[in-house]
Simulated scan of single mutants.
Amino acid sequence: MQPTNPNFTHTFAPPVMEARRWVDGRNFPAHRPLLNLSQAAPVDPPPEGLMQAMADAILTDPAAHLYGPVLGRMDLRTELASQWSANYGGSVTSDQVAVTAGCNQAFTSTIATLARAGDEVIVPLPYYFNHQMWLDMAGIRAAYLPTGDDLLPDPERAAALITPDTKAIVLVSPNNPAGVEYPAPLLRAFFDLARAHGLALVVDETYRDFHSAPGAPHDLFRDPDWDDTLIHLYSFSKAYRLTGHRVGAIMASPARLAEVEKFLDTVAICPPQIGQIGALWGMRNLGDWLAGERLEILARRDAITQGFARLPDWTLMGCGAYFAYVRHPFDARSDAVARDLVDRASLLILPGTMFGPARAQGGSGQAEATLRIAFANADRTGISDLIDRLGTLTA
Rank of each mutant, 00 (worst) to 15 (best):
F28Y: 08
T113D: 09
A258N: 12
G89S: 13
T370E: 08
V99N: 07
A117T: 13
A106Q: 11
Q306T: 14
Q366A: 14
T229V: 13
I122S: 01
L286Y: 08
I269M: 13
W226Y: 11
T353V: 09
T78Q: 14
R32V: 00
A19W: 01
I250V: 14
L71W: 12
G362L: 10
A252S: 12
L187H: 07
Y144G: 04
L233E: 13
D219M: 02
A336N: 04
A81E: 08
L242S: 10
S173T: 15
A196G: 15
A299V: 08
C319H: 05
M17D: 14
F210V: 13
L264H: 03
L171R: 10
S173P: 02
W289P: 00
L161F: 03
A321E: 06
F28C: 08
C270N: 15
A55K: 06
T113F: 04
W226G: 08
F375V: 04
A338P: 05
G287H: 13
P69G: 09
A303R: 09
M251N: 10
Y325T: 00
E120C: 10
N377V: 09
H245R: 15
L199Q: 00
L290H: 07
F236D: 11
E293N: 06
S364A: 12
P153G: 06
D95L: 10
V172T: 13
D388N: 12
D335Q: 10
R77Y: 04
S384N: 07
Q132E: 13
P62F: 09
T78C: 01
A332W: 01
F8L: 15
S38F: 00
G307S: 06
R208W: 04
E181P: 05
D24Q: 15
Q105E: 10
P254R: 07
S109P: 02
V180M: 12
P15C: 04
T108W: 10
V326C: 08
T78L: 05
S91A: 14
A239V: 07
H65A: 15
C103R: 09
Q52S: 03
I231G: 02
I373P: 00
I383Y: 05
A106E: 08
H10D: 14
P126K: 08
H197K: 09
